[in-house]
Nucleic acid binder design. Structure first.
Lengths: 183, 183
DNA sequence: GACAAATGTATACTATACTAAACAAAATGT
DNA sequence: ACATTTTGTTTAGTATAGTATACATTTGTC
């Protein structure tokens, strides 16, 4: 989340510097206190939409120009154990690698399936797309009445708007990478 | 401003109803309290970006889908006396009709110029465009070294990134409509 | 170098966003 | 028809966003 606050701060400071304004100038133009503006720029604040509005209106900029993330990234993620989920009596384990981000629109999971396990999923809302890649082992993916067996290194993309299931037909653990893209 | 809050509320409720979720469901999915969600939907709240983030992330939607204004409008404006500004010793009067709106990107003024008045403006930031229409009288508009005399009903568009001025060469009051478009 | 103005930071206080719980109203089931 | 669950609303309390003021640092000017 504080990713967002940091972005806003960066964008605001960038615009302010481009126009070579002081915090006082911006405070006067936007009717937002200098202290608060400083906090926002440092990414240490959690502004309300009304203050964002006042900033955007006072500076004559759009909302998106404040929310826009910087164009270059260099961000490391590792499996987040706090969001670890296990199903099918612990035989189907889901690890979040990149959690959902409203700006990005998708999330990234690692999945471990014990031998023989079948995991069923309810249909998601319209427009949701799953991309599965087999890292290790094999996976049989079924969606509606379509079915595909994936070998190591193979990838399947499908729209998950109907019941679907993952199965590990082998006698070893199968490891998948799963990207879920929302509309 | 509360235009914005109202929009967010409408959008949120729309998405919730589309998926036929209860406030409790959304509260559970987003980790935002039911009470707050209710307030937001009614447009009576002024949420922070962190709560917007939690809502967007929990519902797997983008930021813009919350900020998006409804597609149909029917909104009346009249001259706002509180933002009335006069310059050149009261001989150049500016009335705001539609104030700047970060989503729209432009604002709309009515201007009254007494006979003979000349009003000079400093250059605006890059990308600012002015559109002047003469409602009554005549106006001589100068921008940089360009010059144009506008009769009643005529309109001029120019980029206001250099010093410019408005002049009323007649012996009657001239009335202008001015649209200022920001980048 | 010394004074003055301007800039960002830190502090104390106020307003309000947000939560948790109790409540009321409607829907659901037996 | 009645109890039970599900729904949105209201209320009281807490956390924190926001402001105003004072402070520290820099910048420019004579």
């Amino acid at each position: 989340m504080d990713q967002m606050s940091r972005n806003i701060g960066i964008q605001l400071k960038k615009i302010r510097k481009e126009r070579s304004l002081s915090l006082d100038d911006v405070a006067k133009a936007t009717d937002v206190s200098k202290a608060q503006l400083a906090q926002i720029e440092k990414g240490e604040a959690n502004p309300t939409v009304s203050t964002l509005w006042k900033i955007a209106a006072g500076l004559k900029i759009s909302f998106s120009s404040l929310l826009q993330p910087p164009k270059t990234f260099f961000q490391k993620y590792s499996v987040d154990p706090s969001t670890y989920v296990s199903e099918e009596n612990g035989k189907y384990r889901v690890y979040s690698i990149i959690p959902y981000n409203p700006e990005r629109g998708w999330e990234f999971y690692k999945i471990e399936m014990d031998p023989g396990v079948i995991h069923k999923s309810e249909p998601h809302t319209e427009g949701v797309e799953e991309t599965v890649t087999v890292i290790e082992g094999q996976a049989v993916v079924q969606c509606g009445n379509m079915k595909e067996c994936l070998e190591e290194g193979e990838t399947l993309v499908f729209s998950a708007n109907q019941p679907h299931q993952y199965e590990n037909p082998t006698d070893k653990v199968t490891i998948l990478h799963l990207i879920i893209q929302y509309r």
